[in-house]
């Protein structure tokens, strides 16, 4: 059973790395990929604890969980700056509105910049 569990631990770690790479490839941002990797590493740590646990295994699992808490807390704290779906919608809206706004601006401020008599 211990051998089987160790194989499962390795497999889950490898799946976590692959998933994190897939998430990074799609999202092009590091925080979601790190969060996914940490979730899989937690799963691997829990599986390792299910095998015959020693004090060093326990300390290792506790450290992984502590690091996970620290990093996920930081990720959550920085999430509003990175952008939620609402912020993404606002960005998209501003991008869509920009040509219109710019056109209005050139209509208001562009005409006085023109030299009189320069055009036909």
């Amino acid at each position: 059973m211990t051998g089987l569990l160790q194989t499962a631990v390795l497999l889950v770690t490898a799946l976590g790395l692959l998933s994190a790479m897939a998430v990074y490839a799609v999202a092009r941002r590091l925080p979601p990929a790190v969060a996914v990797l940490l979730d899989f590493l937690t799963a691997a740590g829990l599986l390792r604890l299910a095998a015959a646990p020693s004090w060093s295994d326990l300390a290792l699992a506790a450290m992984v969980i502590a690091i996970r808490k620290l990093v996920s807390g930081n990720l959550r704290a920085s999430r509003p700056a990175i952008g939620t779906a609402g912020a993404a919608g606002l960005r998209e809206h501003l991008r869509d509105r920009r040509p219109h706004d710019m056109g209005r601006r050139t209509g208001e401020h562009g005409a006085p910049r023109k030299r009189p008599g320069a055009g036909p």
Binding site: V23, L47, A50
Partner: peptide, 15 residues
């Protein structure tokens, strides 16, 4: 352990 392992594999497929 089986539940955790199945969850990890399922999540991998979903990702």
């Amino acid at each position: 352990a089986l539940i955790i392992f199945v969850g990890a594999v399922w999540a991998f497929v979903q990702f």
